[in-house]
Amino acid sequence: MNDTAGPLPASSASGAAPTFRLGVMQIAAPVLGGMLVGTALAYVLVAATGGRMTAGELWAFVSAGVFASVVVPAMPPHYSVELYDDCLVLRGGRRRDIPWRDVIGLEVRKTAGVRTVVIRVSDGRRIPLRAPMSLLDRRFDAKAQILMDWWTARGGGPDRV
């Protein structure tokens, strides 16, 4: 689900390294879930106010949710995290290079049952990474460890002086 491109070594002679991307289901599942909850809420609100929702209106709500869960994952930007020997590259609406020397911490954070990696940089900011993410990804722990290994191999990590 959460794709990586290339091998998953802790170091690379060529400088190229893994790329972490969200899988289609990791993008579609929250959209579909949100649309279904929204549809149910709309139905409850209509019922609570004494109105009625026809089968056609309910079908329109559900169809919009299914359509959105198919279309949204196909739309740009595609977020990814790329590892290189000198920096961590975040791609999305724009490219953002974060030199490894500026990364002072990596941590795994859990929000609403979904674990993500957050990096701390030398200016005090905390930057949550969109990938890898534990939602529908059994290899999340291995991918988080790869990020930690790359950071440690490039002068960071718990033993940093």
Results as ranks from 00 to 15, higher is better:
F67A: 15
L129F: 08
I146T: 15
V117D: 03
A47L: 12
A144Y: 00
D85W: 00
R115L: 04
F67T: 11
P99N: 06
V81R: 00
G33N: 03
V72D: 03
S14L: 09
L22P: 05
L90A: 06
A5V: 15
S134N: 05
F61S: 06
M75H: 08
G156K: 06
D149Y: 01
P73T: 07
T54Y: 02
T116P: 00
L22K: 07
D97G: 03
M1S: 13
L41M: 15
V117W: 10
L36V: 12
D3E: 12
Q145E: 07
E107Y: 06
R52K: 13
V108T: 15
S122L: 05
S134E: 10
G105P: 10
H78P: 12
P158H: 12
M53Q: 11
R130F: 06
A48E: 07
A16P: 07
C87H: 15
G23K: 07
R125D: 05
L147Q: 05
F20S: 01
S12H: 09
S134K: 04
A10L: 08
A112M: 08
A74R: 12
R94M: 09
G33Y: 09
T116V: 14
F67Q: 04
I127N: 06
R130Q: 12
A47P: 10
F20E: 02
R91Y: 02
R130W: 07
P99I: 09
V114L: 01
G93I: 01
G156N: 08
T111E: 06
A42G: 15
Q145T: 10
A29L: 15
W151T: 08
G23C: 04
A55T: 08
I104T: 13
A5R: 14
L136C: 06
P128G: 03
D149G: 03
R139F: 02
D149Q: 01
Y43D: 15
G156L: 03
G38P: 07
F67I: 14
S80A: 14
P99W: 11
T116G: 11
Q26W: 04
L88P: 11
L8K: 13
L106R: 00
T4D: 09
R95V: 04
V161S: 14
F67V: 13
V24Q: 07
V46N: 09
M133C: 12
R115S: 14
V117Q: 07
K110A: 10
V44T: 14
L106M: 10
